[in-house]
Design a protein around this nucleic acid. Structure first.
Lengths: 156, 156
DNA sequence: GTGGCTGAGTCTGTCAAACAGACCTAGGAT
DNA sequence: ATCCTAGGTCTGTTTGACAGACTCAGCCAC
């Protein structure tokens, strides 16, 4: 019987992803950027993340290639920078959507969730669906089973 | 023009969810449990999470109703407990799957991801798809736009 | 030009959390 | 009686979060 214990976790991509997103307020910063709040002070005021931490997180996210600093010049002002998601950052939308959906079910206020993802083209709420390579739709999460991937490293 | 800045972030369900999952090694612990590693020492050895932190995380996850402690008795041993996901925990599978999928693309070793989600019934890899309430499939994350939900609280 | 305002940070000190490693405990096996 | 094992707890050190003050560059009004 093969067990997860037979494989190393050193190169687990989930752990690596969480090493980025798991720093306490990283996802909050991403939520701001995805919500269109892209300037330092706006983010700071809106999210309440301490300036130092916000500064660190933005630098880290730029470093990881998830955000990029884009210069702009407000009329009659000097040059500023704003933070926008890159393609790599936009690919986190399924993660954010899954988090928002779980949160809406389990931790939202009784009035409902504070934020909803919607389809740009039709305005309907977006949700995440699990599908397999054979085209089956997985309605019950119990149908998902983790398995070692091609990069799995055997131990012992 | 309505902006995200017009709404409070106090009751954001994404922030609340990350208050649970964003503690540094919480998701790693969940990955272990979902991988079938359910006993304290196995998790500790396999994941490398410090015992103290593992202990805290498990207690927190049980407290949040994401895991439950299930007693069992190994033959000729005393009663022990293992940690299993509840329904609330299993509903995090889309989140884990989205993380694994993003990680596989962006942070995995060149040989491939260390872990893959598969369909229990057919063995094919599972991935997350974004769908809207009108049945459209969103192939480009740019089609997703966050909007204030029913629980959104206006400020200013 | 001097002084003030604004956006985007950095600096400093305090306090909580992560971490490594040793220690503890209950029950079964020898 | 002692050892072993699973599942923890205790202690001390180091890292990170946090609040609040400070900085700095450029524009603007006087």
């Amino acid at each position: 019987m093969t067990s997860a214990l037979d494989f190393s976790t050193d190169n687990c991509q989930v752990a690596r992803t969480m090493a980025i997103l798991g720093e306490r307020s990283t996802v909050v910063v991403l939520r701001e950027v995805f919500n269109g709040v892209r300037r330092f002070d706006d983010m700071q005021r809106h999210s309440g993340v301490p300036r130092q931490v916000l500064s660190n997180r933005l630098a880290m996210l730029v470093d990881e290639g998830i955000l990029r600093r884009v210069p702009y010049r407000p009329e009659g002002g000097r040059e500023r920078h704003e933070y926008r998601p890159t393609a790599k950052g936009l690919d986190l939308y399924p993660v954010l959507t899954a988090l928002a959906e779980w949160g809406a079910r389990y931790v939202a206020d009784p009035e409902g969730p504070a934020v909803e993802m919607r389809h740009r083209d039709c305005g309907e709420p977006v949700h995440v669906a699990l599908e397999c390579g054979a085209g089956h739709r997985l309605d019950d999460p119990r149908e998902v089973v983790p398995a070692p991937g091609p990069g799995a490293i055997a131990v012992r």
